Computed example of a mutant assay.
Amino acid sequence: MNFKEKFGLKVKSLREEKGFSIEYLANISNVDRNYISDIEKGQRNVSIEIIEKITTAFDIDIATFFNDKIFKR
């Protein structure tokens, strides 16, 4: 699994854990819903700005987001 796929899996996991739809996450993060969908599929190379928007929407800091076993080798 590449890094984009890991990132997308983490976003999808958090979104589902919080009970957010893609549409809701898109609205609260100010990121297009199609872009979020592509992120979750591992098809987007995400900028730090988008990462910040998504982690803010989840109410977690970036370090916490990446401190997950999925990102460890």
Rank of each mutant, 00 (worst) to 15 (best):
F58L: 00
K53T: 04
E5P: 03
S37Q: 12
E52F: 05
R15W: 03
R33M: 04
F3M: 02
F20E: 01
Y24H: 10
F7D: 09
R15K: 04
E16S: 13
I28P: 12
E17G: 09
K6D: 06
T64P: 04
V46A: 08
A26H: 09
K72R: 09
I36Q: 02
M1V: 03
E5Y: 02
F58S: 00
K6L: 07
D61V: 01
F66M: 01
E17T: 09
R44K: 15
R44E: 14
F65A: 06
N27M: 03
A26I: 03
E5N: 05
I51L: 01
K6F: 07
F20P: 08
R15I: 02
G8R: 06
K12L: 10
E17F: 15
I70P: 15
R15H: 01
Q43F: 12
D59A: 06
K69E: 12
I70K: 13
F58A: 00
I48C: 11
Y24L: 05
K41S: 08
R44F: 12
D38L: 13
F3W: 05
F71G: 04
T64K: 14
F66T: 01
R44C: 13
G42T: 02
D38R: 14
Q43N: 14
V11P: 02
N30D: 14
I28Q: 07
V31F: 10
A63T: 12
S13G: 14
N2E: 13
Y35T: 11
K72D: 08
I60T: 15
N34C: 10
F66E: 01
Q43C: 10
E52W: 08
D38Q: 15
N67D: 11
A26Y: 07
D32W: 09
N27V: 00
D61H: 08
D38G: 10
L14P: 01
A57Y: 05
K53D: 11
I60K: 11
L14H: 03
F66G: 03
A63F: 12
R15T: 02
N45I: 08
D68S: 15
L25Y: 00
I70S: 15
F71M: 04
I39K: 04
D61M: 04
I48A: 12
L25D: 00
L9C: 11
T64N: 14
V11N: 02
Q43P: 07
N67P: 06
I50E: 09
F66R: 00
F66W: 03
I48Q: 08
N67K: 05
K6Q: 09
I62V: 11
T64G: 10
R33K: 15
M1Q: 05
E52H: 07
K18T: 05
S13A: 15
K4F: 14
L14Y: 10
S37Y: 14
I50W: 05
S47I: 12
G19K: 04
G8S: 11
T56F: 02
I39Q: 04
Y24V: 00
F71T: 02
T55S: 08
I54L: 13
E17Q: 12
Q43K: 15
L9Q: 14
I54A: 07
